[in-house]
């Protein structure tokens, strides 16, 4: 029997009634209270809300880095509940791209090598193809001239752009980002967001990003407002998707 969320034209990522508690006994906090959402291909989704409302916790569960205490989660229409850790790892590698607020690059590797790390685990491409692809991605984020620079010698903004390129390395269906432009100057912030938006629309991927930046949020197709562990509002921003270049982001 198929799962209720399984359909022929499955959504790339969806969840129903996610519950999550953190801490023990008196310190136990109910951080997610029945969160449901569905990401659509070709659309950008922003999650906004005050600090501590559960945005990052939601992102970690959607990114298969944490398990919910209740509720259901499906990627590409396939439920992930009960999957073994190895299978969750495989799905993270193949289907999800994660961008953290603090880039988290491997300091002992160059920019190019950092991008090739998820590709090596995927095992889909040979070494020259991986190199070409990594170089292309770095070029796209404006670091085509810093391929072989050790990541510890890049500025914070450059490291974040490498992290974004790394999230795209395995051509994931879904990109999850935790304040990806939080540490970037306006120009870079715009450039990165434009890159992500164009990629999502061109490649028909889904982007969910957590942000405190109202300009970025308003430039997304959907804005999900969270408060006290719940999605209290979902707002759709209809726009001319062909001509919209999100030039105003970060201003």
């Amino acid at each position: 029997m198929n799962h209720p969320m399984e359909t022929d034209d499955a959504l790339p990522l969806e969840c129903e009634n996610l519950e999550r508690f953190l801490g023990q006994e008196e310190a136990r906090v109910h951080v997610l209270r029945g969160v449901s959402l569905a990401l659509q291909r070709g659309y950008t989704h922003a999650v906004v809300g005050p600090s501590g409302c559960g945005k990052s916790s939601l992102l970690y569960i959607l990114g298969l880095l944490d398990r919910p205490d209740a509720g259901q989660l499906a990627i590409g229409g396939r439920p992930v509940a009960g999957l073994r850790d190895d299978e969750l790892s495989r799905q993270r590698n193949e289907l999800l791209g994660f961008i953290f607020q603090f880039h988290f690059l491997l300091q002992d590797f160059t920019a190019l090598e950092n991008i090739m790390i998820p590709m090596r685990q995927l095992g889909r491409w040979n070494e020259p193809t991986m190199r070409d692809r990594a170089a292309h991605l770095l070029d796209a984020v404006g670091l085509g001239n810093k391929l072989h620079r050790p990541s510890r010698h890049l500025s914070g903004g450059e490291q974040q752009r490498v992290a974004i390129a790394r999230a795209l390395a395995n051509d994931p269906e879904v990109i999850l980002a935790d304040e990806p432009t939080g540490n970037l100057y306006t120009a870079n912030s715009t450039r990165v967001f434009t890159l992500l938006t164009e990629l999502v629309r061109r490649e028909n991927k889904a982007l969910l990003l957590v942000t405190h930046n109202p300009a970025i949020a308003s430039a997304c197709d959907w804005v999900l407002t969270m408060s006290d562990g719940q999605i209290v509002e979902q707002q759709y921003n209809p726009r001319d998707r062909e001509s919209d270049k999100s030039d105003h982001v970060g201003e």
């Binding site: 495989r90 590698n93 988290f104 690059l105 998820p118 995927l122």
Partner: peptide
């Protein structure tokens, strides 16, 4: 980070 990128 490695785990988040799919390393088991």
């Amino acid at each position: 980070i490695l785990r988040s990128m799919g390393y088991r």
